[in-house]
Computed example of a mutant assay.
Amino acid sequence: MSQTAHIPSHRKPRRSASKLALRAGVAGGVLSTIAVAGAAGPANAEPVTETIEMPTLGSLGTDLSSAVAASAEASEQEALDQSLEAQEAAALEKAAKDAKKAKAEADRKAEAERAEKARKEAEAKAEAERAAAEARAEARARASRDAARTQIAATSASNSSDSGSSDSGSSDSSSSSSSASESTQVASGSAAAIVAFAKAQVGDAYVSGGTGPNSWDCSGLVQAAYRQAGIDLPRISYSQSSMGTSVSLSNLQPGDILYWGSRSGSYHVAIYVGGGKYVGAQNPSTGVVERSLDWDTPSGAVRIL
């Protein structure tokens, strides 16, 4: 049996340095005992001519401790490196997600802005087309009325040529009396409130569907003016002209509603303010204006008050 057979195995894991030193001391004692026993052997024994160098357990324990420490340090460093790599990977992934989210949000905002711009352009175009259509319709209606008035005037002139000079004098007197009456008309009560409100809006813009306070269409202005007198009128022009009592254009009073077209199918309304004038929201090019009845003679009038 070799001398190292009695040495406990040092390959067991995690053996502390203190235990290794203790075992080294024990092994040293055993080796000393073996040496003494050999020296006390028979005198005729042959001397040992070969020396076997045995590793000292003390140095072996020190080397093992250093190796364990180095391995632990390497493992700790590797774990730290892995942790850093994991953190870097997570940071890169988060940055990529944030960038993707920011790009999606920017794209969404850009699309919303484009849609809003397109909507506004479409509304502006539609409004311009409505205004142009209204202007064309008004121009056609006015031309038709002018033609009708011209024909009526021609017929009247032809008829008046058969009348005597006394009739002409009577007609001139009646016309002068009518003009004087128009120039002296003064609104009072509810009519005064309606007329004052209508005149105060002269110069405001015309906007289709407008109900104030600084932009109007024809029926919106009439409705708002009558509201000053505590009277609620329908919103649409043909509904307004269908109310009240029909009056002739030669018997107008301030506050009467003038209409163009048929009474139940009017396409434009205004307010008679006296003195042979009216106030109305005409069209986008003129806005709210005060005009003479001769500028665009209405088709008829109704009295609400």
Rank of each mutant, 00 (worst) to 15 (best):
P55Y: 10
E76R: 03
S75P: 01
S66D: 15
L84V: 08
I52H: 12
A70M: 12
E76N: 03
G61A: 01
A91R: 06
E50K: 13
L64A: 04
I52S: 10
M54R: 13
L64E: 02
T49Q: 15
P47N: 04
A45V: 04
V68G: 06
L64F: 02
P55K: 14
P55E: 09
E76W: 03
Q77I: 05
Q82R: 11
T51E: 07
A79H: 02
A74Q: 06
Q87V: 02
S75V: 03
Q87M: 05
A79F: 03
E53R: 13
L80W: 11
Q82A: 15
I52D: 07
M54H: 14
L92W: 07
E76T: 07
Q87H: 06
P55L: 11
A67N: 04
T51Y: 10
I52K: 12
Q77K: 13
V48A: 11
P55Q: 10
A79Y: 02
M54T: 10
Q77D: 05
E50H: 11
E50F: 12
N44A: 05
E76D: 04
M54Q: 11
G61K: 01
L80H: 12
I52C: 08
S65Y: 11
S65H: 15
A69E: 08
S65L: 15
T49D: 14
V48R: 08
T56V: 08
L57F: 00
A90C: 02
A79E: 03
Q77S: 09
L60C: 01
T56A: 12
A90S: 07
Q87C: 03
E78Y: 09
L92R: 13
Q87Y: 05
A89K: 15
E85D: 08
L84H: 07
Q82Y: 05
E73N: 07
E53S: 09
L60M: 07
V68A: 15
E50R: 12
L84F: 09
S59W: 09
E78K: 10
L64W: 00
T49V: 07
S83M: 14
L80T: 12
E53C: 04
A45W: 11
L84Y: 06
N44M: 00
L80K: 12
A67G: 05
T62Y: 01
E46M: 08
T51H: 11
S75D: 05
P55A: 13
E73D: 09
E88I: 06
D63C: 00
D63T: 00
S83Y: 14
A69I: 00
S65Q: 15
V48H: 08
V68E: 10
Q82T: 09
E78C: 04
L57D: 00
N44W: 03
G61M: 02
L57A: 00
E73G: 05
A86D: 08
S66T: 14
A74C: 04
D81E: 15
E78A: 10
E76K: 02
A89P: 03
S66H: 14
L80Q: 14
I52W: 10
S71H: 09
L64I: 07
T56E: 10
G61L: 00
L60Y: 01
S83K: 15
E78G: 05
T49G: 11
T51C: 09
E78R: 10
D81F: 13
T62Q: 04
N44R: 04
E78P: 00
S65T: 15
Q82E: 14
S71M: 12
A90M: 03
G58P: 01
G58Y: 01
E53G: 08
G61T: 00
S71R: 11
V68C: 08
A79M: 03
